[in-house]
């Protein structure tokens, strides 16, 4: 080693320069609850079962989404619409239960593409939050169907 290398001081000064550069660098941190990461426009999040313009559920329980699903995360049971329920369900056949297992779902969006009634969509702003129990990740109609109010505001 040369004399200047053995003194270590130039190397130390160089190191201090590097750390000082990082000190003033813009931080990559996103303060999560206050800020959220900018998501892509085609980002696929939590499912939603849409209603039509009159507030009736669009889903007709055809089962195409369940067939398309590569992870087999969707199950449903179909039922027949009774008289007087026309304002609730758009088609004569509707989904009595509709469950998506969020632990199995891979958020590929094939259900969205398979749906002939434009009933299921993956939202671009919601994710499934962490929970303590596995069965809490099976989302039923109570958590999937779009609330009525939002159809009026949209």
């Amino acid at each position: 080693m040369t004399f200047s290398e053995r003194m270590y001081l130039p190397a130390i000064a160089q190191g201090l320069g590097i750390t000082l550069k990082h000190f003033f660098k813009k931080k990559a941190t996103i303060n999560y609850p206050e800020e959220t990461r900018q998501r892509s426009d085609i980002w696929r999040g939590l499912h939603v079962l849409k209603r039509d313009e009159n507030g009736a559920e669009r889903c007709t329980a055809c089962g195409l989404c369940a067939v398309a699903c590569p992870a087999e995360a969707i199950t449903m049971t179909a039922g027949e619409r009774k008289t007087g329920e026309e304002h609730l369900y758009r088609e004569e056949k509707y989904a009595v239960t509709y469950e998506v297992n969020m632990l199995r779902c891979i958020f590929c969006g094939l259900c969205e593409e398979a749906c002939p009634k434009a009933a299921i969509f993956l939202q671009d702003d919601k994710i499934a939050p962490a929970r303590y129990e596995r069965d809490e990740f099976i989302y039923g109609k109570d958590r999937l169907v779009e609330p009525l109010k939002t159809t009026e505001t949209k």
Partner: peptide, 13 residues
């Protein structure tokens, strides 16, 4: 704070 800034973090906030 300084440790965090040098390591490109934000530190206690």
């Amino acid at each position: 704070k300084i440790a965090a800034f040098i390591q490109d973090r934000v530190g206690p906030n």
